[in-house]
Each structure stands twice: as C-alpha cells, then as structure tokens.
C-alpha cells in the first residue's frame, strides 16, 4: 500500500520561542553562579569568600533581565500580576509556582548580599541557605514547566529538571569564570582571584560536564527507543532541524570540547580555562533552544 499524503491541515504558531529560551538560560546561569557564591558563606569554604559578592551580584543581574523577557512575551503584559493574585493563582500549574519563585529568589539573593557586604556570618549563612534553595527551585521549575505536558514528547521526561540544573551549574561557573577574569583587571593586585581557585572551579565544571553528557545520553536513548512522538522528536527535531543547537552547540562545542580541554595536561592554562568556560556557557544555550523550540515544533502539525 502506498502511504497517504496530507493535503490540507491547520497550522498554529509554535507557542514559546526565543525569549523563553534566553530566559531559561539566564535563570540557569544565575542559579549556577549563586551556588558558587554560597561556597564561602554557606558551606564555609573560606577561599571562596572573596568571590561571593561578585557571584551573587552576577546572579542578581542575570535575573533582573528575566521579567523583561517574561512580561513582554505575554499577550497581555499588564496582566502579569494575575499570576500571583488570590482567586486567580492556580496551584496545579507549574507556572503559578514559578512566578512566585522568580520573585522571591532575587529578593533573597539581595538580602544575602547585604549580609555578605556587612560581613555578618550568621545571617549571611541563614539567608544564603534560603537563597540557594530558591535558586535550585527556580531552575527546577523551568524543567518542570515543560515536563508536565505528556503531549510534548521530548520534554516529557523526569530528567528535565536534572538536565536543567546540571546545565545551570556548568553555565553558571563558565559565566562566572569569565566575569572574574575581567574583574581581575580592575581589582587591586592583592585582591585578585587566584588562578588556582579559578582552575579549581573549572574542575568542578568538568565534573558537571561529565554528568550532563550522561544525562544527555539517557535522553538520547529514550527518544531513540521511544514511542511514535518521541522517535519523531529524535529524528525530525534533534537529528535534523535542530541538529545545530543539539549536536554542534550543546554536545560538541558545549560539552565534548570543553571536557577534552579540562582533562588534558594543559587544563590549568588560563586560555584553556577561559575558552572552555565560554564554550560551556554558550553551549548550554543550545540546549535551551532545542528543548523549548524543538519540543514544540512538531505539535504545530497535529
């Protein structure tokens, strides 16, 4: 029997696009950067204290861009406060939780930063713990918001939050290393962040990359061996239309090359660390693209 051909159908726009991909990247990099900030004041690793403020300010700054993206992406921007209005708020909708997290997370980071500036160890620790929980939750939510849609096949996986959190961790460190490098030019010689410390952070990033590759491999197998929709996501979206962000940007540029660099004998070299950082930060954005836009590409045909 010959296969049928579809000669008429309706097409509707893919609902979420580039602004959402950038937002997912920003929240992730912010959370990752904040995790590093907390090393010194929350987990008591003294050598990380000098960079705590830079890391948390970077985390706050990245998050400040988020409302612009999210609110202007709405069809009705001036109604954004409905997301938190009693009587409107919908407890089963991940986005309703997300909007509360996105508001409370930067506030908690700001309070933490104030105590860091004041040098108040106890309160910096307490507010730091709260902020780190909120940082992880905010990024956990970005994974969940698409995971809880059984019809979005490549997103409907319990790996989603883990993929996001791991991406957050590595892109946060990558971004922070670049910022610290630039900042070092402006710091007094005795206050500069040492390359030993930065290279240690790069090694944490390397462990994150290994875990991310493992998660990506799991997702790859699930779609390859998956049901009709999952396989279609694999074949049409990941291997074909979105192969640049998926294979090249995320896997090759964002994970494999930096991994090779960071396990090589020249792993402590400044240029190597900075190049790996830039590639990781950029590569994680590739994941945000295929995850958001690729996941919705097929739906517009059904």
């Amino acid at each position: 029997m010959d296969e049928s051909v579809i000669i008429s159908n309706a097409f509707h726009h893919a609902p979420w696009g580039t602004p959402i991909t950038i937002y997912f990247w920003l929240v992730g990099a912010s959370a990752g950067s904040f995790v590093i900030s907390s090393f010194g004041w929350v987990f008591g690793i003294k050598r990380y204290k000098p960079l705590a403020l830079t890391a948390s300010v970077m985390a706050i700054f990245l998050l400040m861009i988020v409302p612009v993206l999210l609110i202007w992406d709405l069809g009705q921007p001036w109604r954004f406060f409905y997301l938190m209005l009693p009587g409107y708020w919908h407890s089963t909708a991940p986005m309703a939780w997300g909007s509360i997290l996105i508001l409370s997370y930067p506030v908690s980071m700001m309070v933490y930063s104030v105590f860091v500036i004041k040098g108040n160890v106890t309160w910096a620790r307490i507010t730091g713990i709260l902020a780190i929980v909120l940082a992880l939750s905010t990024h956990w939510y970005t994974g969940v918001v698409m995971e809880l849609n059984p019809g979005r096949f490549i997103n409907h996986t319990a790996l989603a939050p883990l993929l996001f959190l791991t991406g957050a961790f590595i892109s946060g460190i990558g971004g922070l290393l670049l910022v610290l490098w630039v900042q070092n030019f402006f710091r007094a010689a005795e206050k500069r962040i040492s390359w030993t410390l930065m290279s240690e952070m790069a090694q944490y990033m390397m462990y994150g990359i290994v875990f991310d590759i493992f998660l990506l491999w799991l997702e790859f197998m699930q779609t390859l061996y998956g049901n009709e929709g999952e396989y279609m996501g694999h074949d049409v979206v990941l291997m074909n239309l979105f192969s640049f962000p998926y294979i090249w940007l995320e896997a090759v540029i964002g994970l494999f090359i930096p991994l090779l660099l960071l396990v090589s004998p020249i792993k402590h070299n400044k240029v190597v660390i900075l190049a790996a950082s830039a590639m990781v930060a950029f590569g994680v954005y590739g994941m945000r693209i295929w995850w958001v836009m690729g996941g919705q590409f097929i739906q517009t045909f059904y």
Partner: peptide, 14 residues
C-alpha cells in the same frame, strides 16, 4: 487570560 500560552504548550491536539 494573560496570553502566556502555557495551555497551547500543554494541549496535545494543537
């Protein structure tokens, strides 16, 4: 409706 389009993402039937 705030036009967030979450429901479009959620609907499996376009």
């Amino acid at each position: 409706c705030i036009g967030c389009r979450t429901c479009i993402v959620a609907c499996p039937y376009n």
